[in-house]
Amino acid sequence: MNKKLIKFTLNDKEYKVEVEPQVLLVDLIREELGLTGTKVGCGEGECGACTVIMDGKTVNSCMVLAVTVDGKKITTIEGLAKGEELHPLQKSFVEEGAVQCGFCTPGMILSSKALLDENPNPTPEEIKKGLSGNLCRCTGYAKIVKAVEKASKELNK
């Protein structure tokens, strides 16, 4: 196969990897680079469990060919905490009971982060819209919305 060399930034670290063109971004992240915080729930862009942030925007990494991330900046759930210190969103998800099974959580948190980066003071309706590409079957979303509101206050301090 004709592998392509790509260079990209993942969680503030530079990577140079050779990938076959059919490899998906999610498989590159999970299988090759071993960051399994990014989950696969449907493989078709319907559940959002594989959400990562690419150049400031959320994408479903199950629908992105790895070869196309050349030159881009990617953030996964592993890139949020600073050492032992949780990101305010991670903290608020813990405190508000916004996590049950945890499978949708990384994607939820990344969608929340992208939302707050663009809109630091979202209304509950805007939060729901921002999270509308991330399915959760456990929580009923209520505590997730609260957690995002709480983190937004914390981040605006």
């Binding site: 729930g41 449907c42 078709e44 319907e46 559940c47 939060i127 729901k128 819209k129 999270l131 509308s132 590409g133 991330n134 399915l135 959760c136 079957r137 009923g140 979303y141 209520a142 997730i144 919305v145």
Partner: peptide, 17 residues
């Protein structure tokens, strides 16, 4: 057989509980 045809509620479908 997938989540595009079997639909579950999204965040925008939630009432106030």
């Amino acid at each position: 057989p997938n989540l595009a045809t079997y639909l579950i509620p999204t965040a925008m479908d939630t009432p106030e509980i």
